[in-house]
Design a protein around this nucleic acid. Structure first.
Lengths: 195, 195
DNA sequence: GACAGCCATCCTACTAGAAGGTAGGCATGG
DNA sequence: CCATGCCTACCTTCTAGTAGGATGGCTGTC
């Protein structure tokens, strides 16, 4: 009963895929109105300003990301499997143009020209993703299932950077396979040092 | 005698730093005209269209990059030192807002909305950078000064992705030190496996 | 059950400013 | 004398955002 996806949801979903394609300045209310089949002014009814729209979008994205990670942790108890599930999720996204990049990673490239409210959300995502990866690596190290040279924190930052760089390379080469080619050795190296 | 930097050079230099800040759609002819102290129409005299401007900018960037790498190879014969010199160059850039990101890496994020001529230049940069890194790693492996698990090619792709991801993280955290924190272990790991 | 009020949604019509780009004129210097 | 460089003035299209009206479904109240 009732439309499962409200208009506001549709707008957010559409805006997300447009940002993934071209960033904050790469889309307009007119673009959204065409796709959603609504007038520009109606979008302003749901989201008074562009900043409101993107802030809401990012808050929702972060909530979904955290829920996804919680789900992932339930399905995969082992730290190595959690890392594999994380990269596999993105490997599956890379092929689909509407979700082929992390919205926060893409927006992070444009931080100098972004409104401060947006920057705050992007930074929060980086911090929480880094914190989660750190906790996974810490547990893997204490269990003995993962091994690495430096601290869990610095290894987590390196892992996150490599994943973001892999998304970028996949886009640059126009080849989804590139992502797996970069991320798989990344995990196997962490597992290789196990007892 | 004569102004060392011509107006066209000034325009290109200015456009580059504006792209580094906000990407292809993040700057306008008006922005450049303000900084350079010239009218919008005069920029069109030097570069008829925005595509002309950015294509020229990228061709010059690629030439400079190749010259920089040639210079780097002269100063540092050892493969490990070449990798260190490469990341140190970028570590020095990260602090300066006008050069804190690789222009091609930044534009690569927006490939879906970029004119095809620009995409071609960006892809060419990724390919030549990857080819150079591969050759450095190959030489390091055959000399025995560097060690890694997979092929030189796949290791080079991973290295490049990590460097790009490190630029992104440094920007996201607003902390230049982040870049060194990610890239230094990257090289030491390659060196650690030496005989 | 009829009626009134209210609010959410969406619309048409509009604004001011910024976008990339053009036409044509005026210097200066080889 | 003619190419180079820069100018004023203008164009079209797009930008985010606003004003105000139509619809229509939910309330409460008599």
């Amino acid at each position: 009963m009732g439309n499962l996806a409200t208009t506001a949801d549709e707008i957010l979903r559409c805006a997300r895929s447009l940002i993934i394609a071209g960033g904050y300045n790469g889309f307009s209310y007119a673009d959204i109105s065409e796709v959603v089949g609504i007038r520009k002014a109606s979008i302003h009814h749901h989201f008074p300003s562009k900043v409101d729209l993107v802030r809401t979008l990012l808050q929702r994205y972060r909530t979904e990301a955290q829920a996804g990670i919680a789900e992932l942790e339930r399905h995969h108890p082992a730290p190595a499997d959690q890392l594999r599930a994380y990269t596999s999720y993105w490997a599956a996204c890379i092929g689909d143009p509407t979700s082929a990049f992390c919205v926060c990673a893409l927006l992070a490239t444009q931080i100098p020209v972004l409104p401060p409210e947006i920057v705050a959300e992007v930074q929060a995502h980086f911090r929480s993703l880094s914190a989660w990866l750190t906790s996974v690596l810490e547990r893997g190290a204490s269990e003995g299932s993962l091994a690495f040279a430096g601290t869990a924190r610095s290894e987590a930052e390196g892992f996150m950077a490599a994943v973001h760089g892999a998304m970028l390379s996949a886009r640059a080469y126009g080849d989804p396979q590139t992502f797996r080619g970069i991320t798989e050795p990344l995990i196997e190296r962490l597992v290789a040092g196990r007892p």
